[in-house]
C-alpha cells in the first residue's frame, strides 16, 4: 500500500487525523505516516508520492516571498 507522509509541528492525535481524512477522502487508500517537522512554524504538509498539499505557514510565507520576488 502506498504511503502518505503528513508533516506537522507536533504529533497529531487520532481525532485530528480522522478529521483530515473526512475532508480528504482519498487519504483512506493510503497508509498514513505522521512526521514532526518544527520548521513548518504551524500547519500541515501532506506529501503523496507525486503531490504535495501545503497547508503550513512556512509554505504560505515561501509562496508570498516567491511571488513578490518575481513581481520586481
Amino acid at each position: 500500500m502506498k504511503k502518505v507522509v503528513i508533516y506537522s509541528t507536533y504529533e497529531l492525535s487520532h481525532q485530528e487525523i480522522d478529521k483530515l481524512v473526512e475532508k480528504i477522502p482519498s487519504l483512506k487508500n493510503y497508509q498514513i505516516v505522521n512526521q514532526v517537522d518544527k520548521s513548518l512554524i504551524a500547519g500541515l504538509v501532506i506529501k503523496f508520492a507525486d503531490r504535495i498539499i501545503d497547508l503550513s505557514i512556512k509554505g504560505r510565507l515561501n509562496n508570498i516571498s516567491k511571488k513578490l520576488y518575481e513581481e520586481t
Binding site: 509541528t9 485530528e16 478529521k19 475532508k23 480528504i24 500541515l44 505557514i57
Partner: peptide, 16 residues
C-alpha cells in the same frame, strides 16, 4: 498550534 491545525482542517474545502 493545535488551534491553528483545527482551524485549517475545518476551513479545508473537500479535496479529492
Amino acid at each position: 498550534q493545535k488551534n491553528i491545525n483545527r482551524r485549517i482542517i475545518s476551513h479545508l474545502k473537500s479535496i479529492n
